[in-house]
Design a protein around this nucleic acid. Structure first.
Lengths: 209, 209, 209, 209
DNA sequence: AATGAATGAGCTTTCATTCAT
DNA sequence: GATGAATGAAAGCTCATTCAT
């Protein structure tokens, strides 16, 4: 009895997983290649070869090469923004929120290095394309979250008054996200250590005492 | 009599100066385009158009598009390394040397933003090409200079002991050089202010007190 | 018992009718698209979309896209030739026969505009393909019918002697069939009026008196 | 003295002729292929092959395949409209003007058969494209010239009152321009004979007496 | 020094067709 | 009968580079 129901259900699930899996699989391949060799330098043939199909067959799944990039970036930036907003919404002090944002950022670099690298490398070139206007939009939304925390902490006396929040934000952002270029998820250094060291430097500086 | 000699001589000198000027002019144009739209995304026709000549005519001045990139990068990295080495050679304490490296880096971003951006954006893609092996080589030499200062300062008790120099180096490097993406040489913010703020954050951290 | 037999029979009949209907339906869709946007410009995906199925599913009904065109054209040209032959076989004078051919042609444009347009637009490109040799063949057969009428009428003194029948045939053919490009079956102008006006011009010319 | 001037002048002329000649040559090749096998069915490789160059080299002369079609059609339709307007502007009776329009049309079919065929075959598909809106525009302008002549002749009693000018125009247009499909500039039949026969049929009709 | 015509390789994309399910 | 994934060939176009002038 259970089996009669479970068979089609599992089948349906399997099929849908397969379908969804195929798309995701292709996107994962594309993301990795876009990230490592650059979007423009990655040909659809490269992606097809890596996926074991002909380049033309990609167009059965996606409208264009650009559509693949769009799907990867849109998904990544959307979830990043949501996560940041959730962290900022927690009722805690500015320092705790900033710690949370940093920790989540470095964990994201660990979990989704290709999407992060892609965003780091391509967003400046993409900003001007109308189809990718959301990149600049979400970037601005994210910046606001960080800036608000920095400004609140400055008001509250947690952060130094002689620092301009706009410069501080860029300083933090560049140092944290920049680590995507050298951090290896499979390397000896684990991301929690990185987060810890970064927080020490960011909050306390390099000088002893 | 004098005039008969001096005329062609001055002419020759003028031509050669013009030639040198023309080369530099073309390289400056190429550097800007490579930096702003990416090396691969910049066509030789783009460069030719911007220079007011046909793309084919560029080959009168340079062997290839890659040769232009090479010349720009080699020159930039060479002078950067020399300058860093000179700063490190001055007989001063680790903190003063590190301050000097940072100040010079930010001044370089102000003075040669295109070359810096080019290096930031393309060096990772270039690292694997045999013709650009010097990029990785000089990068390593530069890293050694910074790392030595950090290690010396740590030994001397100037810098915190609980920071891993390798991570600290990358942290500083990414935050400092990352500013090339947002700093505008013509903007309201001057580079000395940036350097000052960056040193405050790097040495003392964000926290008040 | 009757029911056991009648059910599958009616079912089969229904299915087969449905099948036939489906085929015709698909051919009608294809004919319209071939006619309006051109055979080469119409993709099997266009046809599938218009029919509500996937392009690949069309191959359950037809061997190829070309086979659809073939079926449409063969059917059209066959019935056109038969009808013309029947009109010519009636025992009447050349003028009456010619009137009949013209009237039938314009009625056909009204009844089957897509097939006519298809024939008008594609036959010249098709003439050279071996698979479509029947197009040229039937065209020649049809031409003979019209030419014979014209020649007979000229002999009989009905038609002018100073007109070359070959030129006259092409003149009539092009003017009559050309109307498929502007005549609208749903428009204000009905096809009988068109036929009447065309006969006036063809037989009597434009000049008054 | 004359020679010193004539040398550079003839040189310049030769160069410019060569350049202009190359473009025209390529357009002539393209026009013939577009006309005989259809625009969509003609590949840029076909054109390149026929011209003895690689397909990519065509893009040194033209922006796109469509730009070639555009240049051919725009030139043709422009000169056709001018010529028709000039004929209509001559101070003569409607019959003489109509004769002139017909004669010029058939001469054009003789002189520029490919451009005419191209216009005949592709204009209906092009009408909807924004880049080719001028095709519909000039077509309408030309139609107005013919219609005005027909209406004037009808008013003046030259042409029959029982013919609707709109239908008459289409009848004449289709019969005259339709001849591009069968008339051969190199054939035994010369275009003046065709014009003469067409005028006989159009003005006097088929019937004897 | 520069032009302008051409090359040749490679790009993204389209599309008729096949086939296992 | 229909789906959906894939094929394979070909399309229009781009671009670094060459070379005669």
């Amino acid at each position: 009895m259970v089996s009669t129901e479970s068979v089609p259900r599992s089948k349906r699930r399997a099929t849908s997983q397969k379908s969804l899996g195929r798309r995701s699989e292709l996107l994962a391949i594309a993301a990795e290649m876009f990230a490592t060799r650059g979007y423009a330098q990655t040909t659809v043939r490269d992606i097809g070869d890596a996926a074991g199909i002909l380049s033309g067959s990609l167009y059965h799944h996606f409208d264009s090469k650009e559509a693949m990039l769009d799907e990867i970036l849109r998904d990544f930036m959307g979830s990043l923004h949501s996560a940041f907003a959730a962290i900022a919404a927690e009722e805690e002090g500015p320092r705790q929120v900033l710690e949370g944002l940093i920790r989540y950022s470095i964990a994201t670099i660990h979990d989704r290095p290709h999407a992060v690298a892609l965003y780091q490398n391509e967003s400046s070139l993409l900003a001007h394309l109308p189809d990718f206007s959301y990149v600049a939009q979400i970037s601005a939304d994210i910046a606001k979250i960080w800036l608000d925390v920095l400004a609140a902490g400055r008001e509250a006396g947690t952060f130094r008054r002689d620092l301009e929040p706009g410069i501080a934000y860029r300083f933090i952002r560049d140092s944290v996200w920049g680590s995507v270029r050298w951090y290896s998820p499979d390397g000896a250094l684990d991301h929690e250590t990185v987060a810890e060291q970064y927080q020490k430097m960011l909050f306390g500086g390099l000088l002893a005492e």
